[in-house]
Design a protein around this nucleic acid. Structure first.
Lengths: 258, 258
DNA sequence: GCTTTCAATATCGTATGCACTCGATGCATG
DNA sequence: CATGCATCGAGTGCATACGATATTGAAAGC
């Protein structure tokens, strides 16, 4: 987890030589280097390969991805907007370390956003869209219990899928963001087996959406998310004492030193 | 060149200290030139000093603000995330030119977000907060009909105020964003007198919130926003296609030639 | 005269250098 | 031994340099 100073070329770089000449001209598939780094970092953060609170020096990231600080800096800036990275002026970037309160805030917003999603979709799903959803839920069920990591990924994907089906780009962006943040929060505060995001609930939501029962779909979604949240965020903050708050930090520091 | 070592620029951001001391050690108070430029551009765009679709060359902006392209570029990137600027790869930045459909999408999300706001606040307002709200509504009423621009600004501020009172930073950020985008959309598509954002409705919402009637407050807010949206977005112009946009210009040219 | 090709230009995308800030370290001091 | 202060260094903040790319205008070809 320690990001060490590595000279250029030691790691696989984003700017692959093969793609050098002809970059991303098409606007649709335009994946800039910044975005690539951003996505990679987001992934790493969500998977907790980068632990909350970890420092993210610009040049270390640049080296790691074979780009300059410019790209790293840009990516960090955008992740900061997303809430996955905290930017401290003149001190650098750190992996976000959301408190339980912040976690609850994110879930509150997420519930509101996904309620909109259900209301937009109820009764308006086309056959092919229904097929995609059903297929996704089926895949979730198949893998449930076998692969924890993949299971969580699919669960998040389900919600993103729904958001995309609305065709509302604003909604897609916001839902994507809160899902990312929720992933981080669940990784931090969730118990090992708590993040299943009940597959059966996904199925029920799809059913309600198909039936065109907006109210029920919204209700199900709300309960679903409330359940996910409470599974993780139950622990009421008894951490009023400074020592309790600082304990994990201290532990991590000791871990580094050893 | 001319500009150097102008370490002044300590313009305090819009972020006011309403942010309570919750959260981890070190509240991010990142204030930089980038943010200053970003705020200035946002203001200019919302006020339509920069017209939708206008090109925003990096060095021109840097020049205008006495900074380098680096800052301008960063600011443009963030505004693009906010949806006020459109970034075309290798072509540059342009003031967003949202279609009516996009406008509707934004309003859909806004309604959902503000519903959360009302649900968070209903029955939980403290006396001093109530006073602030009442005062704001009173000011709106006083200026109503006298100063159109200021009236619109206050109307937007009312919604931001509510969001801030929730203490939910995520919510604040999203509401701020959609309010900005709605301002642009209303400026583009709204009729001169359509943006009053009915002051009386604001008052009613506050009343319902104080009364603790969450359902009614949410209902009022929803109707309120739906009214604002419909006042502006009724017109089915659908000027998405560039030919439609250029039609009037072409007509004028033909008129000259004949 | 109209289309096509190519050079020129304007701007973007990225890298890099330098100055400045802030935390850390070590020494002086009460 | 704890506290305050000067120095040092890591790393950010910003400006600038350079190569890449799209657009424009002009010249050549049909």
């Amino acid at each position: 987890m320690n990001i060490s100073r590595v000279k250029k070329g030691a790691s696989r770089s984003v700017n692959d030589p093969t793609a050098k000449g002809k970059g991303p001209p098409g606007e649709s598939g335009a994946i800039s280097r910044t975005e690539a780094v951003q996505d990679a970092l987001r992934q790493a953060i969500i998977e907790q390969r980068l632990q909350p609170g970890a420092k993210l020096p610009e040049d270390a990231i640049g080296d790691a991805f074979g780009t300059s600080r410019t790209i790293a800096r840009e990516a960090l800036g955008r992740l900061a907007v997303e809430g996955l990275v905290e930017l401290k002026p003149n001190r650098g970037a750190f992996v976000a370390n959301p408190s339980l309160d912040e976690g609850r805030d994110v879930f509150v917003v997420r519930r509101g956003l996904e309620r909109i999603v259900t209301e937009c979709l109820a009764g308006k799903l086309k056959p092919d869209e229904i097929a995609v959803l059903r297929d996704h839920v089926a895949r979730e069920q198949k893998i449930s219990g076998h692969n924890e990591v993949e299971s969580i990924r699919l669960a998040g994907e389900f919600h993103l899928l729904l958001a995309r089906l609305t065709g509302n780009q604003v909604l897609v962006r916001y839902v994507t963001e809160v899902v990312s943040r929720c992933s981080l929060i669940l990784a931090m505060y969730g118990r090992p087996h708590s993040s299943d995001c009940g597959v059966s609930e996904h199925g029920e939501i799809v059913d309600a959406l198909i039936a065109g029962n907006a109210a029920r779909a919204a209700e199900l979604m709300d309960h679903h998310l409330a359940a996910v949240a409470s599974r993780a965020l139950l622990q009421e903050k008894a951490e009023r004492d400074i020592r309790d708050v600082l304990a994990p930090y201290a532990a991590r520091i000791r871990g580094l030193e050893s």
